[in-house]
Amino acid sequence: MNISEIVWKSVGRGAVHPSEVLNVLIELDNRKGQIGLWALENELRAKIPLLRPTAQPLAKAWLEATIQYRMTYYPEGRLSRLFNRFSQPERESFPLAS
């Protein structure tokens, strides 16, 4: 089963354990690195608006966890932050998961 399937199955179930989230992100990082993390972020961003309202909070939590994981292990330099600001569409701000 690929990483995307694991994420979407947990969203469909409506629950996920925090250790499962961390294990999935570590596995994705080990398999595909930063590019894989970005791909999962983009997939989540694109599909969150299409989900039913009850599934959106968990999908947003996955997105926030993915962003935080990537930012922790792959900090961005000033130049890449500037480039990202101009090259990507306006991002919706998600509150930190608690």
Rank of each mutant, 00 (worst) to 15 (best):
M1A: 13
M1S: 14
N2I: 11
I3C: 11
S4C: 07
W8C: 03
W8V: 01
W8Q: 00
W8G: 00
K9E: 00
K9C: 00
S10L: 12
V11T: 03
R13Q: 07
G14M: 02
A15T: 07
A15S: 07
H17I: 10
S19M: 09
S19A: 12
V21F: 08
L22H: 08
L22Y: 14
L22P: 01
N23W: 06
V24P: 00
I26A: 05
I26Q: 05
E27T: 13
L28K: 01
D29E: 01
D29G: 02
N30A: 14
N30G: 10
R31P: 00
R31D: 07
K32S: 08
K32R: 11
K32P: 03
Q34S: 06
I35H: 05
I35Q: 07
I35N: 04
G36K: 01
G36S: 02
G36T: 03
W38C: 06
A39D: 12
E41I: 15
N42P: 08
N42T: 14
R45H: 06
R45P: 07
A46L: 15
A46T: 15
K47V: 10
L51I: 15
L51K: 15
R52C: 04
R52S: 08
T54S: 08
T54C: 05
T54F: 08
A55I: 11
Q56I: 12
P57A: 09
P57Q: 10
L58M: 12
A59K: 10
A61E: 08
A61P: 00
W62R: 02
A65C: 15
T66I: 14
I67H: 09
I67T: 09
I67F: 01
I67L: 05
Y69I: 02
Y69R: 05
R70F: 02
M71N: 13
M71S: 12
M71D: 14
P75W: 05
P75I: 00
E76W: 10
G77F: 04
G77I: 03
R78Y: 06
L79S: 09
S80C: 09
S80Y: 04
S80A: 14
R81T: 01
L82I: 06
N84L: 14
N84S: 11
N84A: 11
R85H: 04
R85V: 01
F86S: 05
Q88I: 13
P89G: 07
E90F: 12
E92V: 15
S93A: 11
F94M: 01
P95C: 05
L96T: 10
A97Y: 00
A97N: 02
S98Q: 04
